[in-house]
């Protein structure tokens, strides 16, 4: 967190030195400051959380957008073809983590991935109930969801 404050300070220094008092000037200063901090923290040997986090967050955002586009193509396909091919069902997914933040993020992501919609979490945070459009191949579906959960835990740890 202190590194984040340092990053903002470096961005202000950049704005003051370059005389470019605009949003894009600040953004450029932020990016250069980030690169400097990442370089320094690699030199000094301790890869602290902050510099590692930003690439993860960007990667995760791109992943989320990609999932959103995929899920929309899937929904469009389901809506425009006859409905009888769907095999919907409600399945329970046992959770590896019980932290509220991770469960919230995971539930939102699942709602946005193709063909699944999270309905509820059990009161002890250990089971997430999901409505899926296709449960023909339940094992593959569960494997996908587990993979997503692993990503979320990695991001928040």
């Amino acid at each position: 967190m202190t590194l984040f404050i340092w990053n903002i300070l470096l961005a202000f220094v950049w704005v003051a030195l370059s005389g470019n008092f605009t949003g894009s000037g600040f953004l450029a200063g932020f990016i250069f400051g980030y690169l400097v901090l990442a370089f320094v923290s690699r030199m000094s040997g301790d890869m602290t959380g902050y510099t590692r986090k930003i690439p993860q967050v960007i990667g995760f955002t791109l992943f989320y957008l990609w999932e959103l586009i995929r899920s929309n193509m899937r929904v469009a396909y389901e809506v425009l073809t006859p409905t009888h091919y769907m095999r919907p069902g409600v399945i329970g997914l046992p959770l590896m983590t019980q932290s509220d933040a991770a469960v919230t993020l995971l539930a939102n992501l699942i709602s946005m991935t193709p063909g699944t919609l999270s309905i509820d979490v059990s009161n002890d945070n250990r089971m997430l109930y999901i409505h899926a459009m296709h449960i023909d191949d339940e094992d593959a579906l569960r494997a996908d969801l587990k993979d997503l959960e692993r990503r979320v835990i990695e991001l928040l740890s």
């Binding site: 919907p88 399945i91 329970g92 059990s122 009161n123 250990r126 089971m127 449960i135």
Partner: peptide
């Protein structure tokens, strides 16, 4: 009601409607 072609429902059996409590089934 769910659609009559719904294949399975693991939520309904763990739900206590009156007490608004949802079990995980792992207890």
């Amino acid at each position: 009601p769910l659609w009559e072609r719904t294949l399975k429902d693991e939520l309904g059996q763990n739900l206590d409607r009156r007490g608004h409590y949802l079990r995980s089934g792992l207890e």
